[in-house]
Computed example of a mutant assay.
Amino acid sequence: MVNMKLACVVVMCMAMLYAQTGGALTCGQISNNLVPCVGYLQYGGLISKRCCDGVKSIANDATTTPARRFTCNCLKSAAAAVKKINPNNAQLLPGKCGVNIPYKISTSTNCASIK
């Protein structure tokens, strides 16, 4: 029963975050934008144009504090779901694609502190 209540609270929070972003972002869209980057995130090497296009799309869609926080939480969830992500590659990816993200990409990032 407690797990069901916790699940409901998490879903409600995600729905509120989604509403605060204006409905423009979903975790599915964010994850899909990063699919072309998985090889680089795991092993390094060359970064495809499709990967950088996805990173740029994510950055362009996250223009408000709620949207950046939502994106951060989605990135953390996606990182946890993909095995063998190299944390250094994840941190370097935005810069290698010419994108400035105002927070460190890491599973330890406190998304609530992002402005």
Results as ranks from 00 to 15, higher is better:
R68L: 12
I105E: 06
N32H: 14
A79H: 04
A15R: 05
M4L: 10
N60A: 15
G45S: 08
N110L: 12
S108K: 14
V10D: 02
R69Q: 15
C74Q: 12
G54K: 06
G95E: 09
V55N: 11
S108L: 14
L17K: 10
V10L: 14
L41R: 03
C111M: 13
C37F: 04
P87C: 07
Y103V: 00
S77H: 05
I114S: 11
L17C: 13
A79W: 06
K49R: 15
L17E: 10
L92Y: 02
N88Y: 01
M12C: 15
G45V: 12
K49G: 02
V99P: 06
T26I: 03
Q29L: 04
Y103P: 05
T26V: 01
L75S: 02
K96L: 15
A15C: 12
S113Q: 15
V55D: 08
R68I: 02
C97R: 07
C27Q: 07
V9F: 07
Q20C: 09
K115E: 01
N33R: 09
G44L: 11
R68W: 06
C51M: 01
G44P: 07
T26K: 11
C111L: 11
K56G: 11
C72M: 03
V55E: 07
V35A: 11
M4G: 10
S113I: 07
I30F: 04
K49W: 04
V99G: 08
G23N: 08
N110S: 15
V55A: 09
K96D: 02
L34I: 12
C13R: 05
P94D: 05
A79T: 13
A90M: 05
V38P: 09
V99I: 07
G22H: 04
M16C: 13
I30W: 09
L93K: 05
R69G: 00
I30D: 05
C51Y: 01
Y103A: 12
Y43V: 01
N88K: 07
P102M: 11
T26L: 03
C97N: 08
N32S: 15
N86M: 05
K56C: 00
M16Q: 13
A7V: 10
V82P: 06
G28F: 13
R50P: 03
S106I: 12
N86R: 00
N3S: 10
A19V: 12
M12T: 13
G45I: 11
P36W: 03
G39M: 00
N73Q: 09
N110K: 10
Y43I: 00
I30S: 07
C52I: 10
K5M: 11
G54W: 05
P102E: 11
S77A: 13
L34G: 06
L75A: 02
A59K: 02
R69T: 05
N3I: 02
